[in-house]
Design a protein around this nucleic acid. Structure first.
Lengths: 337, 337
DNA sequence: TTGTACGCGTTATCAA
DNA sequence: TTGATAACGCGTACAA
């Protein structure tokens, strides 16, 4: 933990000179001393103290990744393969740009704001914001903010959003199901807002375009918390007889449902067709392999981080970025007459 | 971003007084002024500048979580459900203790050390260290270090390790397989060091206790990188005829293998029995449900963080903590004559 | 009980 | 080309 001051003393010069060499301010320092300093720097393996640097420059080189955990959904948010893949993409991009990532998970938006503020983060990536959460954060801190998967028209005036063409992905899937002869198609999710709303909208639109009536009884609600899961699964399995296909809002739910159906002797896709959304490991390793809508989650994380970095460099970016989806046809949908 | 100095000015008192109130140094300040300051603090929503605080106190309140990524194993380390669950446990514990977590992923130990040093982290949790990595880090920084799943006798002199009774878990599983009539049991993993070595050792021991000879041809090597995976899977499936059971070193590999076998018309557990290790979502959602060895990964993360926090408080801790395993019998092992 | 003054390690300004 | 010196915001020893 050697300091610039100490180095200057040992080298018999001023801290300014050492600092100048460190920052490559060529022309400000003679070739001779530069060499001397550089050698010494290497020898003692000098590493700057970030706290001091940040204090002096009023910056932090930290990008905060704040995840708002929905208390009703997960015991452990990060267990969701979606979340971890996202984090992976963000972390890698931030690191490669010479920034640092501070991860903060909380269900309390106030806590998140305080965290951001103490660390004086240079920028912020938000995931899981609901309602006007994002707006509140952005109004308080005049730092660049990028949200992921946030549906808020109002919000786009305040921050950039990196999302997915959820509606289209969902539309494509339902259209495909219809092309395979399905007409009694349920939609399964745990809520009807944000991303889920967009996917539900795409689902409804595809039905409408095929002149199939949507009724609210087509919506199957799953309760993901471990205490409620078995009960909701039981109910869903019972009601499954009413449909020839169930479009699930995520691969996780699709695979969970298939397991529950299998346990009750209902075969997929023999008795009923099931589809997912996300295309993660879960569905890929499953047999029969899951028919699903692909999204590249890592790219989502990378895009969010890259966009934020652009803003940090003072560049302007689109305030709405929509990544594409792709229909992945595998083995959980059966063609019916 | 109001500062103490500013607050003191507006309240017409000294920074010391304000600071004392903030730190609850009762007795050092009159009831009257305390109230006044506290009110003001709330009103302006004061948040300390961590950089300044850290600089003054020479601490950081940061705990680094450094993951060494094995270049040969993952494209994206964090996608491993094991890793994300671990992070979840660590993050939660650190946050609840008022510390902050800085996540750093790298395959270069030097990079990790530099990172630790710049941020002056108060303590360090290391995962994925190989050989004397952990020792090198601990020799350089006189900070508390806790390693996770590191097998290094020498290392235990330098840091605490939180691990698992891998050998026992493996022993139990193989003993169970033997009790179900299996004698031709393969062991599948991607390497033979660290955790994998311990599990292999338990496997060998169980064979020996049952007077079954181990030959190196019982070891099935999987190459997890996506380019090599299909090839290694093909080879393993071909060789699967030689065995009645394959014990896989992880649930991920077990499920991956079962999928590959299924694709080739080989039924599990009809034609061959397969077991995993970890007991994560992958195996739980799989049908037939995976027979595996349970470990509580979140608890592992929590334990590691809690142990480090203890050391930070100056308490001594055991230098080797071994969490227990538990055999989970489900549906991928068939009893044979 | 309150206030003054200094140090933490770095960068930046300005003078030499 | 180099060197003093102030500034960043906080905590604290010591003085009042």
């Amino acid at each position: 933990m050697i300091t610039i001051k100490e180095i200057a003393k040992q080298l018999n010069m001023s801290t300014t000179t050492v600092s100048n060499v460190i920052h490559g301010k060529e022309g400000e320092v003679s070739e001779d001393t530069r060499k001397k300093v550089k050698e010494f720097l290497n020898k003692v393996d000098y590493v700057p103290n970030i706290n001091a640097r940040n204090l002096a420059q009023n910056e932090s080189k930290i990008i905060g990744l704040a995840l708002k955990a929905r208390a009703d959904k997960y015991e452990n948010l990060i267990m969701d393969p979606f979340v971890s893949e996202l984090i992976g993409g963000v972390e890698e991009t931030i690191r490669n740009a010479g920034y640092f990532m501070m991860l903060y998970i909380s269900s309390d938006i106030g806590e998140i704001m305080r965290h951001v503020s103490t660390w004086n983060v240079d920028g912020l990536i938000l995931f899981g914001m609901i309602g006007d959460d994002g707006i509140r954060v952005s109004e308080k801190y005049k730092k660049p903010i990028v949200c992921i998967d946030t549906y808020s028209i109002e919000g786009l005036k305040h921050f950039t959003n990196v999302g997915l063409d959820d509606e289209q992905g969902s539309y494509d899937m339902v259209s495909y199901l219809i092309s395979q002869g399905h007409r009694k198609i349920a939609f399964l999710s745990d809520n009807q807002s944000g991303v889920d709303f967009a996917r539900l909208t795409g689902y409804k639109k595809a039905l409408k375009d095929a002149r199939i009536r949507y009724s609210s009884s087509n919506f199957l609600q799953i309760h993901p918390k471990s205490d409620d899961l078995p009960g909701s699964l039981e109910e869903i399995c019972q009601r499954s007889k009413e449909f020839s296909a169930i479009m699930c809002v995520s691969d996780l739910y699709a695979v969970t449902l298939i397991s529950a159906l299998t346990d009750r002797g209902i075969s997929v896709p023999g008795d009923i067709s099931i589809t997912g959304f996300d295309d993660n490991m879960l569905g890929q390793l499953h047999r029969p392999a899951l028919t699903t809508v692909h999204q590249d989650v890592k790219v989502k994380g990378v895009t969010a981080a890259a966009t934020l970095l652009k803003q940090l460099r003072g560049q302007r970016t689109a305030n709405q970025i929509k990544l594409p989806t792709k229909l992945i046809i595998r083995d959980t949908v059966r063609k019916i007459n």
